[in-house]
Design a protein around this nucleic acid. Sequence first.
DNA 1: AGCTCAACGTGACGGATGTCACATCAAAAC
DNA 2: GTTTTGATGTGACATCCGTCACGTTGAGCT
Lengths: 237, 237
Amino acid sequence: MPSAQQREIEEPLLVTAKQQQADLSALLIAIRTSSIGNLNSLHSRGSVLFAEGEQPRGIYILRTGRATVSISSSEGRVVMLGIAHAGTVLGLNSVLRNCTYDTTVKAVDSCLTDFIPRAEFIELMQQSHAGAQVILKLLSQELTELTDRAKLLLLPRTVSGRLAKLLLEWSKDNASHLSGTMRLDRVLTHEEIAQMICSSRETVTRLLANLSSQQVIRITSESILICDRPALERLAC
Amino acid sequence: MPSAQQREIEEPLLVTAKQQQADLSALLIAIRTSSIGNLNSLHSRGSVLFAEGEQPRGIYILRTGRATVSISSSEGRVVMLGIAHAGTVLGLNSVLRNCTYDTTVKAVDSCLTDFIPRAEFIELMQQSHAGAQVILKLLSQELTELTDRAKLLLLPRTVSGRLAKLLLEWSKDNASHLSGTMRLDRVLTHEEIAQMICSSRETVTRLLANLSSQQVIRITSESILICDRPALERLAC
DNA sequence: AGCTCAACGTGACGGATGTCACATCAAAAC
DNA sequence: GTTTTGATGTGACATCCGTCACGTTGAGCT
């Protein structure tokens, strides 16, 4: 499992950024939407952008691909708190507070990222009101997403409830409507789904098989179709 | 269970605040530390400051007393995400995003609070860079605390692990050292402790009794003493 | 004192689910 | 083609712990 941490190509950003101190907001938006990819780092599938406990080098902005955000115990238990997609800013809070990263971020696909080292980031934030507003909005969104995730993980008393909620949440994001059903690309393995709902791989396999046999979902090799959404909502309680 | 929501005495704050638009930071700090209590509302034990799903009227700043922050499912299951103490700002993120409160806050003791209505708060934040920085810091802290709580609740596989972690966390806050042991004032009932660690009242009773019989803790009528901290750390894994 | 009510204690029971073990299967590697 | 490897299925089993039921304690009130 390669753990490439490429952060040597950051100088161009620093220069560019210093020229734009008046508006970090514009910078962030530019970085996140620009197709001029001279600041990119490439992370291959499975590589770790940063790990819980490491010093906060800087923030990463996901350009393409997906990455999992997880926490883990010393015994090896892993719980995924979310999936980052293009545009997500990673490591923000740890960099702001200058404490070690509190989550681990791992590439699911191949990922392109932009990197902003901590010192530059802090300086820019303090000098731009608009920049602070943008960061505030990002933090606010992170907090909302974590709260929602807490509700998904902590409120249902059974694993099937959490799984149902997860499928419903995914069906909102991946809005590939198809004659009343929803198609979810299978981007995660059963093992990873288990980590998303605090369960074990075997239980996920069994529950998915149950839902499939009850015609609630239909499983193909590369996607999951949601056939009976009301049934899922009943399970989610 | 009384549900008094007192928010009629907010006009004095509005006037004061508008006179200080230049620096929301100073205002917030002044409100949080000032002993001139002309903006206070009183909430009696058990009363709800605001509930999940209500419109975001404004933020509350806790002056005295303690309050529980919780989420709940439609079936009545309640999970406490934290305990707010003096100085804590409540409802911040919901007010920022102008979406319904995502948690319920209930007074444990009698509580004094200050209230800042949403419209004024937003306006002030947008006009003061220093104010935005303060709010940013508050959001950042909230995010850190919620992440830590997620680690406490999601990583241990057993209830005893979560209980041990909870006791250790409390022992850090309430630093009443006493000849090698830590004393924790019993502010919560077993039922509420259960809600803090996603368990049931009976299980909490049993586990506390077990720890007591193993000399790890000592239970009196108004406090819990931690005698064998290493044992708790082993349980917390 | 007697009453009431909330909090606490305790036993019995059953179900959900984590864990172990092994089989199958597909795609990639050689 | 053969091997390897990671992902998925499936059965057996033990156990944690939620739930139900009921008893006990203690503080506050009339």
